[in-house]
Design a protein around this nucleic acid. Structure first.
Length: 226
DNA sequence: CTATGATCATGC
DNA sequence: GCATGATCATAG
């Protein structure tokens, strides 16, 4: 059990010490068994890093390091350093959204400061042999925040108008809305077209790989297309 | 059910 | 090849 870091600098320093280790090495340091693959434990890498960095385990709907105002995100990357998956941010509110603005939204709070930890994610590499990369402390630039806010407002408009069913993952330039559930039969409450309550699949906000790729590229000075 | 941690697997 | 829609484990 590792105590929570008491400052942003301490957290970042700890994250730097993880760089270069394999997941198998970190798992054994934590006394955790490394699964053969992630098919049945998709969040395993994220949980491992939480434990290595002293994040409080649990499912609190807040930042991982709330005292520091920092969210931890592991991100699977290719050998060229590009994200292999979109990044889940949080569940999307489908009811009780009257008066909700970007400024006071849960998602904005989560993305206000993020410690990104890249991890080799190609399936050809056995899980235990995948390396942890250099961490990156990120805060959205004014431009990035503007882009996220625009997408969020577009998506929330559908939700408020009772048009959840019209939203697909194709909406949103950088932020998208996709299912977030154990399976497609799970339901949660949302607004219908006439304002009546309906049951629908829970959705989550995800950052497109294009967005996270730019964050990593700008920080690590990787070639950026476009 | 909600939340956390995400990646899988198939269709295009 | 890659994005979308579906899915897995766990805690409360």
């Amino acid at each position: 059990m590792i105590l929570p870091p008491t400052s942003e600098q301490e957290l970042l320093e700890r994250a730097y010490t993880l760089a270069g280790f394999t997941l198998g090495e970190l798992a054994s340091l934590q006394g955790i068994d490394c699964p053969a693959d992630l098919r049945r434990e998709k969040g395993w890498v994220g949980m491992l890093l939480e434990s290595c960095l002293g994040a409080t385990a649990g499912s609190k709907p807040e930042q991982d390091f709330q005292d520091l105002g920092i969210e931890l995100k592991s991100i699977p990357v290719s050998h060229t350093g590009k994200p292999l998956e979109t990044t889940f941010v949080c569940v999307a509110p489908l009811t009780g959204v009257h008066g909700l603005t970007w400024e006071n939204s849960h998602i904005r709070n989560k993305l206000s400061k993020v410690l990104w930890v890249p991890v080799e994610g190609e399936r050809e590499i056995p899980l235990a042999e995948r390396h942890v990369g250099m961490p990156l402390m990120w805060q959205p630039s004014a431009e990035e925040e503007h882009q996220l806010k625009a997408d969020w407002e577009e998506l929330m408009e559908f939700i408020v108008l009772g048009k959840v069913h019209e939203i697909s993952a194709r909406h949103g330039e950088y932020l998208q809305l996709r299912p977030k559930a154990a399976n497609s039969k799970v339901t949660t409450e949302a607004y219908g077209a006439k304002g009546q309550p309906i049951k629908t699949l829970p959705r989550g906000f995800y950052l497109r790989t294009q967005f996270t790729a730019r964050i990593l590229a700008r920080h690590f000075m990787l070639p950026e297309s476009e």
